[in-house]
Amino acid sequence: MHGPVSAAWLLVALCAATGGYCLLRLRSAVEEQRHAAGGEALMGFGMAAMAVPAAVFTPPAWAWPGYAAVFGAAALHAVWSARSGPHHLHHLVGTAAMVYMSLVMASSPASHHHPHPGAGVPLVTGALLLYFTGYVLLSGARLVPASAAAGGSAALPWGDRPELARACRLSMGIGMVAMLLTL
C-alpha cells in the first residue's frame, strides 16, 4: 500500500497488534471467541504485511498472487462458515477485499499505484469503501454502550473480553478503510 510513511507504520502497528490479540483469543474458553479469532488473526497480520511502506520493502512479484491465494482460501472458509449464521458474512467481505487488493497490487506496476488525475475511484473500491465505512461507524456506535455496560468484564481473562474483540474488529475495519483509500 502507498501513502504517507508514518501513517503506513501506524497501520502496520495497529494491524499487527490486532492480529496478536486475536491469537490470544484462540486460547479463550468461550467457543464463539475461538471460532472467529483465527480468521481475524490472519486478517490482522495480512493487513499488517500489506501495509508495510513500499519505500522500506517492495514484495517480490509472486507475493501478491500468494496473498490472493491465502485470502481466497480464507474467503472459501468464510463462505462455508456463513451457513451457520449471517455474522460470518463480514469475514467473507473482508477476505474478498483482501483478495481484491492483492490482485490490484499484482496487476499494477509499482509506479502506477496512485490513480491518475480524473481517473476516479473504481467501482469495486468504492463499494468496499462504502461497506467498511458503514461497518466502522456502526461498530464504533455499538462499542461505546458495550464498554459502558461491561463493567464486570475486568475479571474475565484477556482472551474472553467481548469489548476487546469488538475493538479489534473496529480497528481492522478502520485499517481496511485506510488501505482502500491508498489503493
Results as ranks from 00 to 15, higher is better:
S6D: 11
A7W: 07
W9F: 03
W9Q: 12
L11C: 04
V12S: 03
V12W: 03
A13V: 11
A13K: 11
A17F: 10
T18L: 08
G20A: 10
Y21K: 11
Y21H: 15
C22E: 13
L23T: 10
L24F: 00
R27Y: 01
A29M: 03
E31T: 14
Q33H: 11
Q33R: 15
G38S: 09
G38Q: 14
G38V: 13
G38E: 03
G39L: 07
E40W: 14
L42S: 06
L42C: 06
F45P: 07
G46H: 12
M47L: 11
A48H: 10
A48K: 13
A48M: 13
A49F: 02
M50V: 04
M50N: 07
A51M: 09
A51F: 00
V52P: 05
P53F: 01
A54P: 04
A55Y: 00
V56W: 11
V56N: 04
V56P: 01
F57T: 02
T58D: 05
T58L: 10
P59A: 15
P59Q: 13
P60E: 05
A61D: 03
A63R: 13
A63C: 13
W64K: 10
A68F: 01
A68V: 06
A69N: 04
V70S: 03
V70R: 11
V70E: 05
G72K: 08
A75Y: 05
L76I: 08
H77R: 15
H77D: 04
H77K: 15
H77P: 03
S81G: 07
S81Y: 05
A82N: 01
A82W: 07
A82E: 01
R83H: 06
R83V: 04
R83W: 05
R83Y: 00
G85E: 04
P86W: 08
P86E: 04
H88F: 08
L89R: 15
H90C: 03
L92V: 11
V93Q: 09
G94N: 10
G94D: 02
T95F: 11
T95K: 14
A96F: 00
A96R: 15
A96H: 10
A97Q: 07
Y100D: 08
S102G: 14
V104L: 10
M105I: 00
A106S: 06
S107G: 10
S108W: 01
P109Y: 00
A110S: 13
S111Y: 03
H114T: 15
H114L: 13
H114C: 02
P115S: 12
P115C: 05
H116T: 14
G118I: 02
A119I: 07
V121L: 12
V121P: 02
P122C: 02
P122I: 03
V124W: 01
V124G: 00
V124H: 03
T125D: 05
L128T: 07
L128W: 05
L128I: 06
L130I: 13
L130R: 15
F132A: 10
T133H: 05
T133R: 15
T133W: 08
Y135K: 15
V136A: 06
L138I: 12
S139D: 04
